[in-house]
Amino acid sequence: MGIAGASCVLDVMVNDRSALVRDSAAFIAILEKIWKARDVDASLVWSELDERIRLADELRASGIRPYKGGRFRSTKLP
């Protein structure tokens, strides 16, 4: 998992979009294996992520810049 995550960071640093897509997919595949091993329903994780994105979009539409530690605090921010 650490290698997959580090690969994603490196891809961002060198601006290699195709490698970032490939390495991100590998990272997510590892996460899904961990979720399965711990009996976590992947659809719950994806729903949580969708909700965080929805909240961030709603805040932006209201003129609020969403970020953790700012004037609007939420654990739901991406």
Rank of each mutant, 00 (worst) to 15 (best):
M1R: 03
M1P: 00
G2F: 01
G2Q: 02
G2A: 01
G2L: 02
I3P: 03
I3K: 10
I3R: 08
I3H: 08
A4Y: 07
A4F: 05
A4H: 05
A4S: 08
G5W: 01
G5C: 01
G5K: 01
G5Q: 02
A6K: 13
A6E: 11
A6M: 11
S7F: 01
S7H: 02
C8D: 04
L10D: 07
L10N: 07
D11H: 08
D11R: 06
D11W: 06
V12M: 03
M13P: 01
V14T: 13
N15C: 13
N15S: 12
N15I: 14
N15W: 09
D16I: 06
D16Q: 12
D16R: 14
S18W: 09
S18V: 11
S18H: 13
A19C: 14
A19G: 12
A19R: 10
V21E: 08
R22P: 00
R22F: 02
D23V: 03
S24C: 13
S24K: 08
A25H: 09
F27C: 00
F27E: 00
I28D: 09
I28A: 04
I28T: 06
A29P: 00
I30N: 09
I30H: 09
L31W: 09
E32S: 11
E32Y: 10
K33R: 02
W35C: 12
W35Y: 07
K36N: 11
K36Q: 12
K36F: 10
A37Q: 09
R38N: 10
R38Y: 07
R38I: 02
D39S: 15
D39I: 10
V40K: 06
V40N: 08
V40H: 05
D41P: 01
D41S: 12
D41A: 15
A42G: 00
A42Q: 06
A42E: 14
L44P: 00
L44W: 07
L44D: 14
V45Q: 09
V45I: 14
S47C: 15
E48Y: 06
L49V: 14
D50V: 14
D50A: 15
R52M: 02
R52H: 03
R52Y: 00
R54E: 14
L55K: 00
A56I: 05
A56F: 03
L59W: 04
L59A: 09
R60V: 11
R60Y: 10
A61P: 02
S62M: 15
S62A: 15
S62R: 15
G63Y: 11
G63A: 12
I64Y: 08
R65D: 15
P66F: 08
Y67M: 05
Y67N: 07
K68Y: 11
G69R: 05
G69A: 04
G69C: 06
G70H: 04
G70L: 03
G70F: 02
R71L: 04
F72G: 03
F72K: 05
T75H: 14
T75S: 15
T75Q: 14
L77E: 01
L77Y: 07
L77N: 05
P78A: 02
